[in-house]
Design a protein around this nucleic acid. Structure first.
Length: 435
RNA sequence: GCCCCGGUGGUGUAGCGGUUAUCAUACGGGCCUGUCGAGCCCGUGACUCGGGUUCAAAUCCCGACCGGGGCGCCA
């Protein structure tokens, strides 16, 4: 037998009727009726049926019906069109190679009639991923990331990679994972914020980074991970945060369009609708958002950031207007990090929300050295801790801004998934460190 | 950091002081030439751990371990 596979399941068509093909994959199910048996074989694209008769090929028949489910095999045989088969074709096997025998029972059923819990699924993620609805999420994730790259490159952004092992607690706010760096203490980066800003003093003008970030927060919710990925951008010579927002909305629109176009099967498998946002996506000023919430009976003191409940209600209000994506802009300066450009008591900032969940936040940044030092102090932080960062503001720093977009959050909201852990292959959360 | 909730066969569950510990699915065996959630018959298989209360604990109490979710914070 020369090759293990000449065709994937979905490639079978009438032109192969009566022809010899070789297929390979996992044995999803064996239905043995005594003298005839049906083997459902699964590959990356779907499933196909192998039909074998005891009288015709006794040896192959016996081998096939005695396999454990999820064994890996390669079968050479004749493809036959047959309308009794679900996808229209069956393979009559003439040669069988058992490439890997599976143990039984499975720790997690691939097509069992009982649903497994997330914990069991994650403990056996490699099996979980054999399910088409699970695999679809990661096929879409691939398109999401690559379409983001397309879009950003076409718009003059340069891909960069900044350190994930850093010397000091960068932004304040979240807790960082501490680690030993030879004789020094170090931390895992919570975001590329300070580095991508420093790069604005380099003349690269537009940079983006797709990378991992680490947050040592002890939360245990369906929206949080301790290790997650993000698309970050930073751009110089902007007139205000609107320039950044238009990149973000264009990016999200492009991502949605690409997914819609290139992931039709996966979208169908997941039974979701991908609606690319209309540009410009609505801008809701923080003050307006407060009023909208007040009408719904939610009282919030001016200056407070929205909690998850408020975000959810705003999402509900927008959904009634048929809007999935919307910006919340002009937050009070105290609700935003120190590098955010102030504007009166407000800030040149924005959050992008999707269906009631914040998926991205950004702003115009402060590029004036003295103002930046003052804002660091006002936030109770020590300018000396930021000396490497601050230095970049002393020798020619153009006006700039950017955003961070959480990949898992975006994917979760696009696909209406209930748990962010669905969107990452091997999640790290409050309690999970393996596999 | 705070607050709720839960741990029963491989998987998912019922039971909530005295049961032969329920059911499904999976697994093993048998029958079956058109299955596609195949069907039918038979079988194997479980109370997280430690202490306590009680004549009696899966069941009540305490602790540990493991897990789920919410808040805060954020992506």
């Amino acid at each position: 037998m020369g090759v293990y596979r000449t065709h994937y399941s979905k490639e079978l068509s009438d032109k192969y009727d009566g022809k010899e093909v070789t297929v390979a994959g996992w044995v999803e199910d064996i239905r043995n009726l005594g003298s005839i048996a049906f083997i459902i074989l699964r590959d990356r694209q779907g499933t196909l049926q192998i039909t074998t008769f005891k009288k015709q090929h006794r040896e192959i028949f016996e081998k096939l019906i005695n396999l454990n489910r999820e064994s890996v095999i390669s079968v050479k045989g004749v493809c036959k069109a047959n309308e009794k088969v679900r996808n229209g074709y069956e393979i009559i096997p003439e040669e069988l190679q058992i490439l890997s025998e599976s143990d039984a029972p499975l720790p997690l059923g691939v097509v069992d009639k009982v649903k497994a819990e997330m914990d069991t699924r994650l403990d056996n993620r490699f099996i979980d991923l054999r399910k088409s609805e699970v695999r679809s999420i990661f096929m879409i994730r691939d398109v999401l990331i690559n379409s983001a790259r397309d879009y950003l490159r076409k718009n003059g952004f340069v891909e960069v990679h900044t350190p994930k092992i850093i010397a000091s607690a960068s932004e304040g706010g979240t807790n960082l994972f501490r680690l030993k760096y030879f004789e020094k203490d170090a931390f895992l980066a919570q975001s590329p914020q300070l580095y991508k800003q420093m790069l604005m003093a380099s003349g690269l003008d537009r940079v983006y980074e797709i990378a991992w970030y680490f947050r040592a927060e002890e939360h245990n919710t369906r929206r949080h991970l301790n290790e997650s990925t993000a698309i970050d951008i930073e751009m110089a010579f902007i007139k205000d945060e609107e320039d950044v927002m238009s990149v973000l909305e264009g990016l999200v629109k492009h991502i949605c369009e690409e997914i819609k176009e290139r992931c039709k099967d996966e979208i169908e498998t997941l039974n979701v609708e991908i609606k690319p946002p209309e540009i410009p996506v609505p801008r809701i000023r923080y003050d307006e958002a407060l009023q909208m919430l007040e009408k719904e009976g939610v009282e919030l003191e001016w200056g407070e950031d929205f909690g998850s409940e408020e975000e959810r209600i705003l999402g509900e209000i927008m959904r009634r207007k048929g809007v999935d994506f919307y910006f919340i802009t002009k937050y009070p300066i105290q609700a935003k990090p120190f590098y955010t450009m102030p504007e009166g008591g407000l800030s040149k900032s924005f959050d992008l929300c999707c269906k009631g969940v914040e998926i991205s936040s950004g702003s115009q940044r402060i590029h004036d050295y003295n103002l930046l030092v003052r804002r660091i102090e006002e936030n109770g932080l020590k300018p000396d801790d930021f000396r490497d960062y601050l230095k970049a503001f002393k020798y020619g720093m153009p006006p700039h801004g950017g955003f961070g977009l959480g990949i898992e959050r975006l994917l979760m909201q696009l696909l209406n998934l209930k748990n962010v852990r669905e969107c990452i292959l091997f999640p790290r959360d409050r309690t999970r460190l393996r596999p």
